[in-house]
Nucleic acid binder design. Sequence first.
DNA 1: TCGCCAATTCTCGCATTATGAGGATTTTTA
DNA 2: TAAAAATCCTCATAATGCGAGAATTGGCGA
Lengths: 312, 312
Amino acid sequence: MRAAVRRRAFWPGLRGFFNFLIMRECLASNAPTMDSMTQVSRSVAGDSSITRVLGILDLFTPETSVWTVDMLVGRLGVGRATVYRYVRALCDAGFLVPVAGAGYVLGPRFIEFDRSIRLADPLLHIVPPVMAELRDVVNGGQLLCAFYGLRVLTVLQDKTDPNITMSMERGRPFPLFQGSPSRVILAHLPTYQLRNLALNHQAEIAAAGLGENWAEFRDGLRAIRRAGYLAASDIDKTLVGVSAPIFHAPGAVTASLCLVRTRDGLTAEHQAFLGGVAVEACQRISAALQAFRPGEAAAFPISRVRQAAGIA
Amino acid sequence: MRAAVRRRAFWPGLRGFFNFLIMRECLASNAPTMDSMTQVSRSVAGDSSITRVLGILDLFTPETSVWTVDMLVGRLGVGRATVYRYVRALCDAGFLVPVAGAGYVLGPRFIEFDRSIRLADPLLHIVPPVMAELRDVVNGGQLLCAFYGLRVLTVLQDKTDPNITMSMERGRPFPLFQGSPSRVILAHLPTYQLRNLALNHQAEIAAAGLGENWAEFRDGLRAIRRAGYLAASDIDKTLVGVSAPIFHAPGAVTASLCLVRTRDGLTAEHQAFLGGVAVEACQRISAALQAFRPGEAAAFPISRVRQAAGIA
DNA sequence: TCGCCAATTCTCGCATTATGAGGATTTTTA
DNA sequence: TAAAAATCCTCATAATGCGAGAATTGGCGA
């Protein structure tokens, strides 16, 4: 009750700030906010104190980046003491930080872990020089997108054309079935994975126009695989993304490189040219990746679609 | 047992890769690896399944970025089923991802959360243009360091002098009592916070040469506060960092800007000049921060040193 | 495409430990 | 310095996390 008073004291201002941020981002790209889409598919968890604690972190979005204990009590439906226990554990681990007055925000641990991932990622050692080399040829923008479990997200960005306002900086998630970076990765997944996906995500696949049934889905992806690259503009309608796959082992896709140009006046020939550039670059990247330490099986994330999940 | 066989199959190669990374980093900066120092002070937690689960993530360092279930069983001393339960919760939340064969690595959630923090951080909207403006004046490097709870870490970096090899990119933690960015923040903390720090971290303060007792500690920091900036080269001996504080509210320090130059041939006059530049820039940044949305109390992390911790 | 084997999940009884209410403490602000 | 708000501590109760083994699934080779 008392906290509610405090909250009102600084909340409207913050809201204003974050609305500004969101608007800025939405205006920058013509794409709708995709975060919410990926956010939803995440809450398939069971119930235990552990999932409840981890679930708290999901509440901290750019739109709602400050949570007071009282807000959490209301949201989680558990006692105040329990919320304090949860929050304390997360604070001790550095995942949350208290802010002046009251409330908590995401903590420094995420920034540190991101660095840790960057340091350990061979892709980020190999790709930057390739991107720099391609910069003038592409004359637009480039994205490196990694495949994590069942998520695709940008891990590296390079932009030259100031007219291209890509809000696709590191950390921005892609819907699994939309955008050329995702779909070109999808196309190179092993068959049994694709079958599981078709079983578990039929509605989303149909909604993305990837086919109404398994045969259509499979054949569509096979066509992409045959072409070697995929050009599409299904996320930002004013842009075209030309993506090719990157493999950490023969037949094992792990990422994709996406060359971005404004759609305006881009001929089919030019698209094909960009496709060739992307494929050639990705072949070099893949080779470097596999040769990084000779004879080594690298540690790259794999997809894991649970069959049981589809039955429920 | 069977997993141990698999592990041996790919482990040596990975070790080689990461040793390479670590070496590369240590060679780049002449500074000792500080991560371990900050790592240690983190494990003050009690014991519960929650802290145990969160503690698992701490095991994933750049040196040991892949953990198999069997390794975790050995390390945590809990049953295999329990480890699977923990790992599953973390995977479902996106904090871990299974890799081919066996084992887990840090997941995409950290990359997404880092972006979330970047989007919500007013500093990252205000400071880049200031850094760009200072680039030619400084003619070296610049760091923006944020104060998170009781941690200081780099959140933004700008480098022009190629001779300065700063391994201080985003996410790199600073020891609380070392380095000019940390110490200049320390100097502007409220008195009761400093008193708690002096109680709880006496040994570290003495080790960092900040005084053997409360009076020395306080007076040293007061001198820094009087000067308005701090020049030091206590982390990388070949460099000098000149730092000034940034305030999110009058008297409430939240970050620091650090101008970096090679120590070689840097006169006292030049140091004073850089100090003036830093102070002036930070005053502008602070003003912008406080004016970002007029009349609003912003949500900045605060330090919270628990008095009870000092008694134990 | 099928089948095998390792990797993961499930089942269930038991015991540890998470929970909530309210009071004690600490932190912060005036 | 003192008052108010936020955070933490204590303890009895009951829920739920734990471990061992069985059952299942997913990944890889033929």
